[in-house]
């Protein structure tokens, strides 16, 4: 009994009041921030939520110190291929996954600490023309990659030292898969969005990698990216971002949508709609629970409540520089916001 809100709801005079700056960390050796994330890290019997920052040639692990300060624990050097993404691995400890490449991902690596050798190490997980990668629960990684002839969609299991022998190939759709999302509460279901705007659903139990259904999102929202999927009352609710959607009179400038799909009939219905603040364009987003965040081309960061369909906070670029990155921490209502100069600010939302 909820209907898509076609009229964008925007708050006038949005400010940072919903975001409280907690601390910031600056890597003096880092020039350009590429990505930021959080990871659970255990050392000497103490398990802490640490921050991981990436620039093109290195990835650093930061641990919390007293008084909201952060100390660098270690920096992995990655000099051969540029780092382009940190791939969060849910429910794992002492393991950082990164994607490296030029225009697209060519390599996936694990960064870890080996207690056997008492040293920080890195190991290669996969190479290829990788189009999308996502960390799954139970220390697994799903990726889509392309050769000239075909697309491979594969789930690999990770050991503490790298790629384990257990793997599973999923039936690929004809079109390239650009993003994945686990179906919350259903370990055996996985969803992907494709280059021609379809939602595909796989069964990923140990026996099969069947492609169960392909459903179309609609032509108005090209190259939609799935962020979050949950199943409720026989429907699949998919949170999508629309990095390339054009502004329209009826919908404004769409940033995120929640769409309900009936997997049995492939019919769908819009549930909630979030628009960009007026005068802003372009976005690169992240979603956690009902909170969505995106970096806009103006150098601002916008935050939305997806249940309300409203923009709830706006971080404008300030004299210290434009915003380049925005990610939610894996736990707590904490926003990680990165500037081009490598500074990462932690905000409580």
């Amino acid at each position: 009994d909820v209907a898509e809100q076609l009229t964008p709801v925007l708050l006038d005079g949005l400010t940072e009041e919903n975001l409280q700056l907690v601390s910031n960390l600056k890597d003096s050796s880092s020039s350009c921030a590429v990505d930021v994330s959080t990871v659970w890290w255990e050392a000497a019997g103490c398990r802490e939520l640490c921050v991981v920052t990436a620039c093109e040639s290195s990835v650093s692990l930061w641990k919390p110190l007293a008084s909201d300060h952060w100390g660098k624990v270690y920096t992995w050097q990655l000099t051969e291929i540029p780092v382009i993404q940190i791939v969060p691995l849910p429910d794992t400890c002492n393991l950082v996954c990164i994607a490296l490449g030029d225009l697209e991902i060519g390599e996936i690596r694990l960064l870890l600490y080996s207690s056997e050798n008492n040293s920080f190490q890195q190991s290669l997980v996969k190479t290829g023309n990788i189009k999308a990668v996502l960390g799954l629960k139970d220390r697994r990684l799903v990726s889509s990659s392309r050769t000239v002839q075909e697309q491979q969609v594969e789930i690999v299991s990770l050991s503490v030292t790298g790629r384990s022998r257990d793997g599973q190939t999923l039936m690929p759709p004809e079109e390239t898969v650009l993003a994945f999302a686990e179906v919350e509460g259903m370990r055996d279901a996985l969803v992907g969005t494709t280059a021609v705007n379809s939602i595909v659903v796989w069964s990923v139990n140990l026996k099969t990698g069947q492609l169960l259904k392909k459903m179309h999102v609609g032509y108005s929202y090209p190259a939609s990216i799935c962020h979050r999927v949950y199943s409720d009352s026989g429907l699949l609710f998919v949170v999508l971002s629309h990095p390339h959607a054009k502004e329209s009179e009826s919908c404004g400038n769409p940033a995120f949508r929640v769409i309900a799909f009936n997997p049995k009939t492939a019919r769908s219905m819009g549930v909630m709609f979030s628009s960009l603040p007026p005068g802003h364009t372009g976005r690169q987003g992240d979603v956690k629970d009902a909170s969505a965040v995106a970096v806009l081309t103006s150098g601002a960061i916008a935050v939305w409540d997806l249940l309300l369909g409203q923009c709830t906070a706006l971080l404008l670029p300030d004299p210290a520089g434009s915003w380049a990155l925005a990610r939610w921490a894996i736990t707590g209502a904490c926003l990680l916001a990165g500037r081009w100069d490598g500074t990462v600010c932690l905000y409580r939302y």
Binding site: D1, T208, S233, A260, N262, P263, K264
Partner: peptide
């Protein structure tokens, strides 16, 4: 969301689609 908009809804959609899909 109602069945008139989305067609017949099944709580067991995953099991049913798994059984229908080619191996």
């Amino acid at each position: 969301c109602s069945e008139s908009d989305l067609g017949p809804i099944s709580l067991n959609w995953f099991e049913e689609l798994s059984a229908e899909a080619p191996p």
